[in-house]
Lab assay of single mutants.
Amino acid sequence: MAAAAAAGAGPEMVRGQVFDVGPRYTNLSYIGEGAYGMVCSAYDNVNKVRVAIKKISPFEHQTYCQRTLREIKILLRFRHENIIGINDIIRAPTIEQMKDVYIVQDLMETDLYKLLKTQHLSNDHICYFLYQILRGLKYIHSANVLHRDLKPSNLLLNTTCDLKICDFGLARVADPDHDHTGFLTEYVATRWYRAPEIMLNSKGYTKSIDIWSVGCILAEMLSNRPIFPGKHYLDQLNHILGILGSPSQEDLNCIINLKARNYLLSLPHKNKVPWNRLFPNADSKALDLLDKMLTFNPHKRIEVEQALAHPYLEQYYDPSDEPIAEAPFKFDMELDDLPKEKLKELIFEETARFQPGYRS
């Protein structure tokens, strides 16, 4: 834990890192770190609560700039109880001085990944967590956004079992017609939660990839272990087919990539493993919904509104309290091709509203 900075004593240090967030945020305490930044909790002297502050230093890398800009653009436009918001952003007053960006968010005690390492969940908890994931996802999908990296560590939890989806750095506007060349190379989302079509096709992607990830998360809540822990690309596919069985001819016809289709045709026939054999203690309604989410063919996979209306979630289902976005989200430009200098300018502009004396 960093010592509390005395008023006016300059930035606090946390594990050798400068955290320049005073005077409003003090009493910093280390939480963890990701690929390009550290997260601390801090005391907000204005709202009198502890908050989470993520320090991001992305400006050396085009990919990190892209992810940072995506996350900020999306989260500043989203407003939903099951999606983490941005409360404040701290950065230098000029673009030349801006080396880091500090993002202030609600402090959540833990995440689903940490929880599943230590606790076996009751059916009631599984049901409530799944409902909140789908409630947040309904809003995301209504904005025409794909999260693309749903996994237990991106689901934040607090002691009252509130759940918030975080990390929109890989999110995209849904565009089933656009052929994202190089899709697989830039697709760094965790393999275990990846839909089979991501490994088999490169053309376009749809909201059904997020539903697949939610199915993987439900299976993990039922058993405290990942359902498809593939060691590499082909191993991942083999794990999936080992449980779902061989795809039907109709399902194979959806695979545009001939090499991928021929690979699947070359494999020995596998039978589907019954879900109640894998999860003998699970609620039968939970397994019915799991089956509809972990469907090989993305066109037959359940959609988020149908999933919310499934009998497993009937005690929570309330369409009048499951809000959607006001308007579909649009990125003005494809960020993939922009140089990091341009992305830095866009991050600077996007964060201006939090600067003292800002006038829109």
Rank of each mutant, 00 (worst) to 15 (best):
D251Y: 15
P226C: 05
G8V: 15
R79G: 09
H180S: 06
S213F: 10
T295H: 05
S41I: 04
I56K: 12
N87S: 00
Y25H: 07
A195V: 11
E341T: 13
C65L: 14
T68A: 15
Y43D: 13
K259Q: 12
Q105W: 15
S360D: 09
F354K: 07
C166V: 02
C127M: 12
G32D: 11
S153W: 06
N271Q: 02
H178I: 11
S320V: 08
A171H: 01
I90E: 01
Y312A: 10
I31G: 02
D210R: 10
I256M: 08
N257Y: 15
L134M: 15
C166Y: 10
I84H: 07
V21F: 01
I103A: 03
L222E: 05
N281Q: 10
A307F: 00
D177T: 04
L294S: 09
T26R: 03
P229S: 12
N238L: 12
Y312H: 00
K344I: 05
R79V: 11
E334N: 10
Q315W: 01
G16F: 04
T206W: 10
T185F: 06
G85N: 06
N144K: 13
F279S: 09
L287T: 09
P247K: 11
M108V: 00
P356Q: 09
M293K: 14
S202Y: 12
I240H: 07
S213G: 03
L308G: 02
T185I: 10
L218Q: 14
E12S: 05
H232T: 06
F78H: 02
T68C: 09
L163A: 04
N87F: 05
K292I: 11
F168I: 14
F329P: 00
E334I: 00
C166H: 05
R172I: 07
K151M: 14
K270W: 01
G85S: 13
D291L: 11
T118E: 05
L290H: 01
V104G: 11
H125S: 03
G16P: 14
K231E: 08
A282R: 08
L116I: 03
M221F: 11
T190V: 05
N27Y: 15
Q17H: 14
P280F: 11
V145I: 05
F168T: 06
D111G: 00
L287N: 11
H232F: 01
S360K: 12
S246I: 13
T63D: 14
R135T: 01
L265F: 09
P58N: 15
N201K: 15
P311D: 12
Q249L: 13
K231M: 14
F331C: 08
S266C: 15
D251Q: 05
G37V: 15
R191Y: 01
I240D: 03
I256L: 09
A42W: 06
L294F: 03
L278W: 04
A52G: 12
L278V: 06
P11T: 14
N281S: 02
K207L: 10
F279Q: 12
A307M: 08
K207A: 13
F168Y: 13
S122H: 02
A35F: 05
A143F: 02
Q249M: 05
P323E: 07
E305I: 05
K292G: 10
P196T: 15
H310A: 02
K164F: 00
A143W: 06
E349R: 11
S320Y: 14
D210Q: 08
C254W: 08
I103Y: 06
F228L: 14
I103M: 05
D283H: 08
M333S: 08
S223P: 11
L130Q: 14
K285T: 08
R77M: 05
A171M: 05
P323S: 09
L346C: 08
N224K: 13
V21A: 06
G22V: 15
V273E: 15
L156S: 12
N45I: 14
A7E: 09
A282Q: 04
K54R: 06
L265C: 10
E322F: 00
G242R: 00
Y113V: 03
L241A: 04
Y187S: 11
S320T: 13
F78M: 04
G8N: 02
D321C: 04
A9P: 04
T351E: 12
L137V: 01
N281Y: 15
K203C: 12
L267W: 02
T94P: 13
T26H: 05
D318Q: 01
T68Q: 15
N123H: 05
V145S: 05
P152Q: 05
N82S: 10
S223T: 14
Q306M: 06
P176H: 07
